[in-house]
Amino acid sequence: MKLRANGIGIQVDVQGPAHGTPLLLVMGLGMQLIGWPQALVDGLVSRGFRVIRLDNRDAGLSDGFDHLGVPNLGWAATRHMLRLPIDAPYTLADMAQDAWAVLDALEVADAHVCGASMGGMIAQHMALQQPQRMKSLTLMMTSSGARHLPRPAWPVQRAMMAKPPPRRDRATLVARAEAIFRLIGSPAYPATEEALRARVTASIDRAYRPAGVARQMAAVLADGDRSRRLRDIRQPVHLIHGRADPLLPSAAALDLKLKLREATLDLVDGMGHDLPDELLPRFADGIATNAARA
């Protein structure tokens, strides 16, 4: 269903009993709500949660911001390296306000929140914006934005910055997406060719919005270092990160662990920057255990 939230249309999926404990899942850069595997949602529902997934603005079936144009990511990345301000079309804080507005529209007073990658950055802003409404926070394969952290592996940077093919060239789109997922995926838990192809084609057929990805990337670059503000987060925090993550190396998780009081950390051997099927029960257990600390 599509809700009106923060003045824009946000696509939302809600599963689980109406009396279940609300849990909001926030996905990463360019990803859609279907990026959260159904098996993970089922596992969370079985643990008593009412699971809420959303398409972030400019992704999936939520409203886009094409009227704001496409940012020059090369120029934005250069300014980021020089620690100069970046004029992004919108901010991660705006996207966090979208998420709170979704919960308002659903009449959810408070909730547990889990964010992955860019979604984890958005979730950090959520915790700072309305701390009284966030019961617990799980951060998956994400970062504080600290400047000293290692950058993504060069092949990943090159793939992420490459110009996307046009939508009409579906075969190239699918092949490129598969190559990127293989590049950032978990070496110890590789997806089968059939499973990866099904996941990629489902995403492309549902929505293909490269300009939205560019605007979201600009928002990430503009957000900078959240380290000092993270000291104000008081909710129970659980960190999940792969030791083999080539996009956000595991040093990012160790950095977050130092900056978030009482945070627990699950550093997973052989895990990259994805959600392998074999690890979904482990993720669900971690989210539920952290929620029980609230």
Results as ranks from 00 to 15, higher is better:
Met1Asn: 08
Ile8Cys: 14
Ile10Glu: 04
Ile10His: 05
Gln11Ala: 14
Val12Met: 04
Pro22Ser: 07
Leu23Arg: 05
Val26Tyr: 04
Gly30Val: 06
Gly30Asn: 10
Gln32Gly: 06
Gln38Ile: 13
Ala39Asn: 05
Leu40Gly: 00
Asp42Cys: 12
Gly48Arg: 02
Arg50Cys: 10
Arg50Asn: 11
Leu54Met: 15
Leu61Tyr: 12
Asp63Pro: 14
Phe65Asp: 10
Asp66Met: 05
Gly69Cys: 01
Trp75Ser: 13
Trp75Arg: 09
Trp75His: 14
Ala77Val: 00
Arg79Ser: 03
His80Ile: 00
Leu82Pro: 10
Leu84Lys: 13
Tyr90Lys: 06
Ala96Thr: 11
Ala96Gly: 04
Trp100Thr: 10
Ala109Glu: 12
His112Leu: 11
His112Trp: 02
Ala116Phe: 14
Met121Asn: 03
His125Glu: 15
Gln129Lys: 11
Gln132Leu: 01
Thr138Glu: 10
Thr142Asn: 00
Ser143Lys: 04
Ser144Glu: 02
His148Thr: 10
Arg151Phe: 00
Pro152Trp: 01
Ala153Cys: 09
Arg158Asn: 00
Arg158Phe: 05
Arg158Met: 11
Pro164Asn: 13
Arg168Cys: 11
Asp169Arg: 11
Phe181Val: 15
Phe181Arg: 12
Thr192Pro: 03
Ala198Ile: 05
Arg199Pro: 00
Gly212Leu: 02
Ala218Leu: 13
Ala222Ile: 12
Gly224Phe: 01
Asp225Ser: 14
Arg228Pro: 09
Gln235His: 11
Leu239His: 07
Ile240Thr: 08
Arg243His: 07
Ala244Ile: 04
Ala253Leu: 14
Leu254Thr: 13
Leu254Asn: 03
Leu260Met: 04
Leu260Gln: 02
Leu260Thr: 04
Glu262Lys: 02
Glu262His: 06
Leu267Met: 11
Gly270Asn: 00
Gly270Lys: 00
His273Pro: 04
His273Asp: 07
Leu275Phe: 05
Pro276Thr: 04
Asp277Ile: 05
Leu279Val: 10
Leu279Cys: 07
Pro281His: 08
Arg282Ser: 07
Ile287Lys: 01
Ala291Thr: 09
